[in-house]
Design a protein around this nucleic acid. Sequence first.
DNA 1: GCCTGCTAATAATGCGCATCATCAGATTGA
DNA 2: TCAATCTGATGATGCGCATTATTAGCAGGC
Lengths: 366, 366
Amino acid sequence: MPRRRITQTDVAAMAGVSQATVSFVLNGSTPAGVRISEETRQRVLDAIRITGYTANPAAQRLAGGGLAQILGVFTYEATFPRASRDFYGPFLTGIEHAAERLGVDLLLFTSAPVQDGRRRLTREGWQRLGVADGCLLLGQHEHRGELQHLLDTNYPFVFIGKRGSDGGRLPYVGADYVGGTVRQIDRLVALGHRRIGYVGMRGTDQPTLDRVDGYRSAMKAQGLTTRFVELDDVAATAAEIVDQRFTAVVVAPENHPEELADELERRGRRVPDDVSVLLLGQPHHPRRGGRPWSGFSVPREEMGARALYLLSRLVADDSPKRDRGTGRTPTDLELHQILVCPDVEGGTAAPARDPRPETDNRTDPA
Amino acid sequence: MPRRRITQTDVAAMAGVSQATVSFVLNGSTPAGVRISEETRQRVLDAIRITGYTANPAAQRLAGGGLAQILGVFTYEATFPRASRDFYGPFLTGIEHAAERLGVDLLLFTSAPVQDGRRRLTREGWQRLGVADGCLLLGQHEHRGELQHLLDTNYPFVFIGKRGSDGGRLPYVGADYVGGTVRQIDRLVALGHRRIGYVGMRGTDQPTLDRVDGYRSAMKAQGLTTRFVELDDVAATAAEIVDQRFTAVVVAPENHPEELADELERRGRRVPDDVSVLLLGQPHHPRRGGRPWSGFSVPREEMGARALYLLSRLVADDSPKRDRGTGRTPTDLELHQILVCPDVEGGTAAPARDPRPETDNRTDPA
DNA sequence: GCCTGCTAATAATGCGCATCATCAGATTGA
DNA sequence: TCAATCTGATGATGCGCATTATTAGCAGGC
């Protein structure tokens, strides 16, 4: 029993009309001045109902007709490992939500080969992209050539996460790491902190750059000295924090804040009583019974949703059927969206215990 | 700039050959005795490399050639709400993992309309399914007609979760709730428990039926009396447990075990010292700092992965290109897989405090 | 010189659909 | 009564690919 699809031709035969007529009835609108009588229309609709006809999307796509109503999601890093699952999960949740509301299906490009933990968009990959009307891109390390190909083929796509250098032409939905970080510094200053360290400046990814940027400008605006702590392991970092008599530190979530706090307490510095620790984003690997972090959170779900909405509009505007629309020009869509990262009131921030400068009675650990 | 795809014809022109030749080179095998010289082959491959040609999957699909290498995932319940996200997440993780290994893409059918929290597979939906080579079905409440259509069209699919009544012909990957529950009873008996209650027998879903089944048969095998507690709210349930002097209860995860334990302790019965509570599955809404439950866990990730593998094989066997394969008959695939639910050693099970029968000083509550 | 056998490739076809150009028949205007 | 208009529909075409049938060219056997 070779599964035979019911085609428009089958329906047409049953209704006693031509295949073209069926197509017209289905698409409602008739571009050229083609008219279908109500009677015929009903006959066709009945035939469709009886046969249970379902259009073949591949054929629709090929015939250049409509969109597939499929939007793709490409993740540069492999999403599978538990770790990144925690990270990507919220994005996907937001994306799914938006997809439901838009009535589109989601295509997860899980087929692209992962090389050293990073998914590449190979030639093979390009083939697959075509199934979707457009694509969301998640992750940091996009490849130059790949991007160029996207632009060349005029394939609609949207990045999740701000694109910095020469990202001017790339549509994205990002988070305001700069503003979020600035606010954390201001909060700490308001609590009486002066010696505020920054942990985790390594990395050339955009979030890191933005956080450092925010830290620098906020400290400068407050007239304070920037102090970066950048050591190889958590223990050394904690030692340095103690040593430098910081009363507060801001930490990027990928820098093992949980372990850092543990190390601090092991050295007799309680969090937040002795040292406030603010997290610049959500913990990447939340652990059971972990600390309730203060800091800011990245609105990942909303980013996902907004990105999909944006993509959806790009696709619509890009579609050959665009002219049927409201005639709205593409320029009124915000190609670069930066979302606010709301503050999180946890339990790791407290007023500075002793704002006055102490004697320099440090002991050298490492 | 109307995005123009590069087609096989373009490649052919560049290589100075016919479109058919390009197709042959790409597909390697030539069913009929068509030969391509090594020299020509190279010329075509070069042209492909230069042009960056990527096949159009829609066309491939339409031409009846290969599979789209896309497998679908249809979720009956809306996956979006946080609650069900926690539940479905692990399945999806497993599915994704399998998809990566199989080199297929995943199509999430988020487009189907959700009616009172349940997604329906409407006519619209059928259209969409066709994009994928086959489909995974998640969730309890499938619609009869929908299933029939699947069977009629011979569309490959696999259920996640055991199918009971007349599910004989439906391929599925389920979990051994029966066995898992039996083992919990046996564990409790080994710990000296005799008065073992069952909480949460409502519901006609398969897991519930299986759990009740397991409880019944295990208790019978141990020569003990089955005792079901089925009240409307958690407080009343806790009261009943205390009242009946159960030394242990097994609870289905959808019955608010966390709240139940709280209520028990509020009534002076510590868990597990006074009452052991075993969970028949993972908590549906894990809460921060929740109890470390003893019981068994449902291997959701593995179920997802196994289901996708199974689907993949069904698709392959069903494909018109099957004959090229090893000639393996479809019958050697296990259409009904039941996975073991491993025991979880948490902290909510303890030896029965007082195994000897007490006087029957109960007070009647509701 | 003609047929056979073999290699290397091409032409032609169809998948299911959207769309354009065309057409038959009915109605109207003069 | 014949052309002009309108209504309601059909035939033909092509999307990009896989595949089958066919052909061109050439070596060898008789």
